[in-house]
Design a protein around this nucleic acid. Structure first.
Length: 720
DNA sequence: TCAATCCGTATC
DNA sequence: ATACGGATTGAC
């Protein structure tokens, strides 16, 4: 034995043995490897020989380099085995990148399920799940992995052929039911009763949820090691990060780990702070792509090595490994930032639900608004509702009023230039007088450059199809956003006016105008360029774009929701749901009515989303929305897949695909840059079959080296 | 009959 | 992407 295995400076295990005299490992000489190539027809494990010098370090979950079709590629060691089914000769693993087992069995299994659900490759999902290696971070002192947990024979992932089956990877909502009060039998009841100190702690934590009748029971069940599943409607003014932290702490008290996902950096900062307060320092780690490679990998390692039991983060954290997962949580699942833009385009909510299902963990889907998807979980009985009673709700909501489509502009000329209807202006003035801040929510500039009548502000709609009129780039005549017709001789149907003005003004311009309307009051903006997280309690006007609303100390005295028309008339099926979500998020920052809090929404009070806001009833709206989607056959009531690409490529793929029975084809619709898009619709029971068929067809095409690529997306957020 | 070349397919 | 096998072609 002349070979010397050593650990190089970068931590990689290399060997001095010449290729010619390599020997296979004595025990479990075969490694099943997922090669990191994005081709769908290669989405299965390949077997390699483990050289003797890697015998101990090449454990399941490690990164390797292998020769594949003549070139060196990265790969994941999924499992070690005694022998191979492969007929031909096996090549050796070329290199063990690092002995760090970064792919835990739980995540390997989850990644396979996610790939199957989204008609994607395991390798693509693994690239999302495990951050790029950073050798320095790996060498930094951290709790060493327990060698006893790494059994050489342990399989990390089920092999491709067994994992593509339905069963565990089926939609959560079609699976069994659970209840908060009496969830599935506890696997580890000892944790709940062993220590009375822990029992007291859990009671303290559960106390935080007393405003919600089923809340404390949920926390107790999680602490006891059970797997309750809940859709939580947070009260206005709720300190949701603290509630999330309490749920996390209860899980930790029961000896299990937590993964919680939020949409953006600001929510993450709040949750991070709440966890430090509730859980103490060093018990959790925040993970987001914004950290940069080194810190991100370090945070990842803290979780995968079992140093911390709680991981919170943006969607980058949805695959974070934690030991003995007990709870997955997501806040504001309607935020489109939860949708991963890289193939296979998984959604954080769905990944977490699948994860909970596979790991038998509890689920907490929280928000002020409720998505159709969350409603589906409730209606199928997969999850239970956590909501306050109407009575509690009444005590917390601000006073909310609409002001019509044809707003009476305030008579005060300054207020009129600020586009403020008189009701809004009055509410703002009263709040400022009471020395409380005012939040003004305006849609983002360029969000939709729509037009309205210069004289009466009636939205300018296309005379043919009632679509929104807008100025196309440099042209001076407005055209319809929907049908494209140019509205050359536009006259306002309400007042006959012929002049149009852009109805969306950016936050900055609004801020300037409001500054003039309320002289002497400080005006601050929070938007894309600079996002404020907190503003002090005194009189001030805060202009914010949706999603960037700062929290006010003590709550806002008034919240004004302006230019709502822009949100409501978007040519998007989710427009209403999205509008309500944004309004509720902003309105939740107002004081309760009893403390003078008022919300004015500049929209027609008869519209369903406006109704839902006025009554603070996100559940009612979600049920309505879901019923409508059921009627129309849209997700989540049905499963949709979109196939996008150049027309011949789309046709080619659809010719190759063996669609499940009763699959419906819709389209094509243009998708920009000479591309077109087809939609395939099936019932939820055939969802898995559809994904499999599309993946298979993509594989056939790739094997034939079809040059034009197509993009396959399951339940894309934007349907038309 | 054999080598050079082309094409399709598998990639361990 | 590259490598290999089998079929095809062309020169002896």
């Amino acid at each position: 034995m002349g070979a010397v295995a050593r650990t190089g400076q970068d931590g990689a295990v290399t060997t001095t043995r010449k290729r010619s005299d390599r020997q296979p490992a004595e025990r479990l000489p075969v490694a099943r490897v997922c090669v990191d190539v994005p081709l769908p027809h290669l989405d299965r494990p390949f077997d390699y020989l483990v050289p003797a010098e890697f015998a101990d370090d090449a454990q399941p979950g490690t990164r390797v380099r292998v020769r594949f079709a003549g070139q060196l590629v990265d790969g994941w060691l999924l499992a070690r085995a005694e022998s191979s089914e492969h007929g031909g000769r096996l090549a050796y693993l070329e290199r063990l990148v690092s002995p760090e087992p970064v792919l835990t069995p739980e995540i390997a299994r989850l990644a396979r399920a996610v790939a199957d659900r989204y008609a994607g490759n395991l390798a693509d999902v693994l690239r999302l799940a495990v951050p790029p290696r950073h050798a320095r971070a790996e060498q930094a002192p951290a709790a060493p992995a327990d060698p006893a947990t790494a059994d050489a024979a342990t399989e990390v992932a089920a092999s491709a052929d067994t994992a593509t089956g339905d069963g565990a990877t089926e939609d959560p909502a079609t699976a069994g039911t659970a209840s908060i009060a009496s969830a599935d039998a506890a696997t580890d009841g000892a944790a709940a009763t062993a220590l009375t100190d822990e029992g007291k702690l859990v009671e303290t934590l559960a106390e935080g949820w007393r405003d919600y009748p089923t809340g404390p029971g949920f926390l107790r069940a999680v602490a006891a090691g059970r797997a309750p599943r809940a859709v939580w409607s947070a009260l206005p003014g709720e300190e949701w990060p603290v509630r999330f932290a309490e749920a996390a702490a209860a899980t930790v008290a029961g000896g299990r780990g937590v993964v919680a996902v939020v949409a953006d950096a600001r929510d993450l900062a709040r949750l991070d702070a709440a966890l430090t307060a509730v859980l103490g320092p060093g018990r959790h780690v925040a993970l987001s792509a914004a950290l940069g490679p080194a810190r991100r990998y370090r945070a990842f390692l803290a979780a995968s090595r079992g140093t911390v039991p709680v991981v919170v983060g943006t969607r980058a954290a949805m695959f974070a490994p934690v030991e003995r997962l007990g709870l997955v949580a997501i806040w504001d699942d309607g935020d489109d930032l939860h949708a991963e833009p890289r193939a296979p385009y998984p959604h954080a909510r769905d990944v977490l639900l699948t994860r909970a299902q596979l790991a038998d963990a509890a689920v907490l889907v929280g928000g002020h608004a409720r998505t159709g998807e969350a409603q589906q979980l409730v209606e199928t009985g997969w999850a239970k509702e956590i909501a306050a009673t109407r009575e509690t709700l009444r005590g917390r909501t601000p006073q909310i009023a609409p002001t019509g489509d044809d707003p009476q502009l305030a008579r005060d000329p300054a207020a009129a230039t600020a586009r403020l209807p008189s009701l809004a202006w009055q509410a703002a003035r009263a709040a400022l007088k009471a020395d409380t801040p005012v939040l003004v929510q305006v849609p983002r500039r360029g969000y939709l450059p729509s037009m309205s009548c210069e004289d009466c502000r009636t939205p300018a709609r296309c005379p043919h199809c009632a679509g929104p009129l807008a100025l196309r780039s440099s042209q001076s005549t407005p055209a319809c956003q929907w049908c494209g017709r140019v509205a050359a001789a536009y006259a306002c149907p309400h007042c006959g006016g012929r002049r149009l003005r852009a109805s969306i003004v950016g936050a900055r311009r609004t801020a300037e105008e409001l500054g003039r309307a309320f002289p002497g009051v400080p005006v601050r903006t929070s938007g894309r360029d600079e996002v404020l997280s907190v503003v002090p309690g005194g009189a001030a006007v805060v202009v914010a774009t949706p999603g960037a609303e700062p929290v006010a100390e003590g709550g806002y005295g008034a919240v004004l929701l302006l230019d709502t028309w822009a949100l409501l008339t978007r040519a998007d099926l989710r427009a209403s749901e999205e509008a309500l979500r944004r309004w509720l998020s902003a309105a939740a920052l107002a004081r309760p009515a009893s403390a003078g809090g008022r919300v004015v929404v500049v929209a027609d009070g008869g519209l369903p989303p406006v109704q839902a806001l006025l009554r603070w009833d996100p559940g009612w709206f979600a049920a309505r929305e879901l019923a409508e989607r059921r009627e129309l056959g849209f997700p989540p009531a049905a499963r949709m897949a979109s196939v996008t690409g150049l027309p011949p490529a789309v046709a080619d793929l659809l010719a190759a695909v063996r669609l499940p029975e009763e699959a419906e084809l819709l389209g094509p619709v243009p998708a920009g840059e000479d591309q077109e898009r087809m939609l395939v619709r099936v019932t939820r029971s055939r969802a898995a079959a559809l994904a499999r068929a599309l993946h298979e067809a993509a594989g056939l095409r790739a094997a034939r080296k079809a040059s034009q690529s197509v993009r396959i997306q399951i339940d894309p957020l934007e349907l038309f």
